[in-house]
Design a protein around this nucleic acid. Structure first.
Length: 287
DNA sequence: CTCAGCTCCTGCGGGC
DNA sequence: TGCCCGCAGGAGCTGA
């Protein structure tokens, strides 16, 4: 599913169920996602309290009261399904409603407060690992990731320096998590459209002014998507507590052949394949 | 170092 | 209806 906005939305959705709560039981129904879990991961999680849920790039980080942190990546198809957040009162008793286990439910966190968080991932590109909190930043999955795009470290001068001399297309460069964290195929396409930059353009051949436009476009695109996720989060909560994809009004992504949304632009959105992945763009608005 | 291509895995939709 | 193909929001790894 997830690029930065979706992961941030999932994190926020998990907060009431997980943060400050103890994991009564961590149940690993399948231990081989992208990599195998540490063999003792269930033991290390069971009984631990979640002190804080953070996000770094597309990773959700759960700091535990035992000096360790759980690292979660949703891959392409990972979802977190929350159930039983609120006790159902029937005469004489309370109980927590949980749906039946489904195909591809790989990991379940049974929380002390009665909530259950189910990690479902059909393609199993997702990952989990656990390691000491003080050295979390040195973890191989996290160590080389670039700045958060919504932080002050990400600015035009930084991006210009990182793109300088690069022949690779800007589309490919922005997907490189070492340059900037958290962008994926959708929001790269959307940000490039906003900035009026062709995904095919060599990364090192974009002027300083346009790179500044691009950093602003990346930020605006992500913030807008997070806000959209926030609203759909409320909808989901009312429905069944499930956190999944939220539909967002994309301007180019997935719109091949459809008219460009720019007022007066006669063009249609094109699709090109770059490093094996689809890029969507307007050949007139993006140069 | 940079860069393109391959790879993991399952599901879905379109064409025949 | 069934089968085959291409495609999917990620990213690590290999080899040139």
């Amino acid at each position: 599913m997830p690029e930065l906005p979706e992961v941030e939305t999932v994190r926020r959705g998990l907060l009431p169920a997980m943060e400050g709560q103890r994991i009564a039981l961590a149940e690993l129904r399948r231990a081989d996602l992208r990599w195998s879990f540490p063999t003792d991961m269930a033991i290390r999680l069971t009984g631990a309290r979640v002190l804080q849920l953070r996000r770094r790039s597309k990773y959700i980080l759960a700091d535990l009261d035992r000096g360790e942190s759980l690292i979660i990546h949703l891959g392409m198809s990972g979802r977190m399904v929350i159930s039983g957040l609120e006790a159902v009162h029937v005469p004489g008793q309370f109980h927590f409603d949980h749906p039946a286990i489904e195909k591809h439910d790989h990991v379940l966190f049974h929380m002390e407060n009665g909530a259950r968080i189910t990690f479902n991932d059909p393609r199993r590109f997702g990952a989990m690992d656990i390691c000491a909190t003080p050295t979390l930043d040195l973890h191989p999955l996290l160590a080389r990731i670039g700045p958060e795009p919504l932080s002050n470290e990400f600015h035009a001068d930084y991006l210009a320096a990182r793109l300088n001399g690069r022949k690779t297309p800007i589309k490919t460069a922005l997907l490189d998590q070492r340059i900037v964290a958290g962008l994926g195929n959708i929001y790269v396409c959307e940000a490039l459209f906003r900035a009026g930059i062709s995904p095919l353009r060599a990364a090192g051949r974009i002027g300083a002014a346009r790179i500044a436009l691009l950093t602003d476009a990346i930020r605006a695109t992500l913030i807008e998507a997070i806000d959209a996720g926030g609203s759909s989060l409320r909808d989901y909560r009312q429905a069944n507590g499930e956190l999944g994809y939220f539909q967002h009004a994309f301007r180019v992504y997935g719109r091949e052949g459809a008219p460009c949304v720019t007022d007066g632009c006669p063009q249609t959105v094109r699709r090109a394949v770059q490093s094996g992945r689809s890029s969507f763009y307007c050949p007139s608005c993006q140069r």
